[in-house]
Simulated scan of single mutants.
Amino acid sequence: MTHELKVLAVDFGAWTPDDWSALAAVASTALTILTVVIAVLAAIYAKQQVDLARQLREDQAQPFVVVDFADNPVWNKAIDFVVENMGQTLAKNVKIKVDPPFQTTMDDTGHTLASSPLLSQAIPSLPPGKRITALFDVSHERHAAGLPMKYTATVEFEDAHGKPQEPLTYILDLSIRYDLLSITEYRTHDAAKALREISKTLKETRGDLKNEFYRRRQAESADDDSSSVE
């Protein structure tokens, strides 16, 4: 069996002016289409960039309310619950829902965070950079009490114009705070505690000195009486 390979050959020398004109028209049309496609793609890309820049400006100009646990600045064994607007504009009608409701070792003292206005009512306004801090619990006492270590907090709020924003959800996990190495920093609370202990020690020492002085006076008085009798 014989296989024939046929190659399409174009004899440009045999082309007439009309053939060349037709080729030029096809090439011009193809170039025009390519130019239009490039222009459309460029326009789409430019619109995407404009939309992205506008969205970025809008995001930067929106309130951003964050809730979290933080170390107490006075006592490093205490844990604070913090609400902060880290955005650049005012947040309004801020509502915080926590699941399950907060439980702390201080609930029996009458200061129940779960029923406080901070969580049971809406915060009317939260300016940019505004930070609200509430004492939550004491780390070692909470661990010993076996209270929940993980909560889900949902924050609903409006922007400065009263437009509802997308709710933000946070997982608040206290368990990550345990079994970590840290450097002890003695703060104002520790200094005050040390001063109270020093004051107590001085009072006890002064009392002991008074008792010793009185005992010696009594002993000297008894010796004088004995000498007089002799």
Score class of each variant (00 low, 15 high):
T133F: 06
K203I: 09
F136E: 04
Y178L: 13
I198T: 10
L181N: 08
H3Q: 11
A192W: 06
H3C: 03
N211S: 13
A144L: 02
D68L: 09
S227R: 14
D224N: 12
L126N: 05
G13E: 12
E58H: 08
T188R: 11
Q60I: 05
P101L: 03
L126C: 07
A114R: 03
L8I: 15
T89Y: 01
A53K: 05
G207S: 05
I183V: 14
K200E: 07
F81G: 03
V138Q: 10
E58A: 14
M86K: 15
D59Y: 09
S120D: 02
W15H: 07
T35Q: 14
T29G: 03
L90K: 02
F81H: 04
D208P: 05
K95V: 14
D19Q: 12
K92P: 01
E204Q: 11
A70R: 15
A39I: 09
R142L: 15
D51H: 11
T32I: 09
Y214K: 11
E185Y: 13
L168E: 14
I198D: 07
T29A: 00
P17D: 11
F102E: 06
I38F: 14
H3M: 08
V10L: 11
L168T: 12
R54G: 00
V82T: 06
S28R: 12
A222R: 14
D225Q: 10
I198V: 15
P100Y: 02
I33Q: 14
L172F: 01
E141P: 01
A53S: 13
H143A: 10
S125C: 01
K163A: 10
L126Y: 02
L174V: 09
H143Q: 07
N76Q: 13
T152N: 00
R217I: 03
D99A: 07
R196L: 11
L180K: 15
L174Y: 02
D80L: 05
Q103W: 02
N72K: 03
V155H: 02
